[in-house]
Amino acid sequence: MRNFPPEIVMEAVANGLLTGAVYGLVALGLTLVYGVLHIINFAHGALLTLAMYAAWVAWAAFGLDPYIAILPLVPIFFVLGYGVQRLVIGPASRGEDSNILLVTLGLSILLENAMLAIFRSDTLSVQVDYAMEVVELGPMLLSFPRVVGFGVAFVVAAVLFVLLRMTDTGRAIRAVAKERTGAALVGIDVRHVYAVTFGIGTACLAVAACLLLPSFYVNPRVGNAFVLVAFTIVVLGGMGSVPGALLGGLVIGVVESLSGLYLGDSLGQLGIFVIFILVLLFKPTGLFGAKA
């Protein structure tokens, strides 16, 4: 293994943390949906790709800066997520785990290939003048879009935390997550709460997409790269745990960055999968999760 000067390693760690926060945001939606609906949403990656295309279209057709595009895209994707759960996943699954698995897989195949048919396999990106700007932090030079992504990811996590703790909707969501039947008995509309949760999860993706776009690219398969990472984070952080998702995101970001540094780009992804398999095999409740 090569030896790198400490500044390079430190910069890799910092970059890993920055990327990891956005990973955490992607995982946040996934873990929330899992925690409440107890489903593994295989369409999560495809929905992220969809959000990235939406942000790209907002920029290409309407000249909207990706950061501004967060404002219209969040409500749109909330409604989309609400509708998908209410009209497609809910009715098709009839409460069976394997059905949900298959329906969300079907959705992801459908979305991913619809985007392939519309946008073709070309890689698209946005040109914004701040894409190449850097922020100086001590000896490190950090990319400006990534720093923004890091900050916004934490803001979103905080908003979500407050929403879950302090509002009636949040209480209803937590009630359903804990005890579905009991929540239904005290008059909570469980199907509505399910759909709202799915909507929030999808809205998180819209934010993540807008944060990623200035420093990343979009093609029909881009979500795939994130979805396994997000699953890894969710499993690592404990299925259903919100702080776990964010922490897991940071850990995975650093692991990816360091294994990329030491193993090279093509083998670098391996670190994540290996962690994923090891955690699944030996500690499927996650490092921060309490119960399976």
């Binding site: 497609v88 009715p91 098709a92 699954s93 059905n99 298959l102 329906v103 897989l105 079907g106 959705l107 992801s108 195949i109 459908l110 979305l111 991913e112 290939n113 619809a114 985007m115 392939l116 048919a117 073709r120 396999s121 029909p220």
Partner: peptide, 19 residues
Amino acid sequence: RIPGIDLVIFGVLLILVVR
């Protein structure tokens, strides 16, 4: 030959078969 169009149909079919 629109790329992906066959898989779009597969995806729809999968959802319908489960539904």
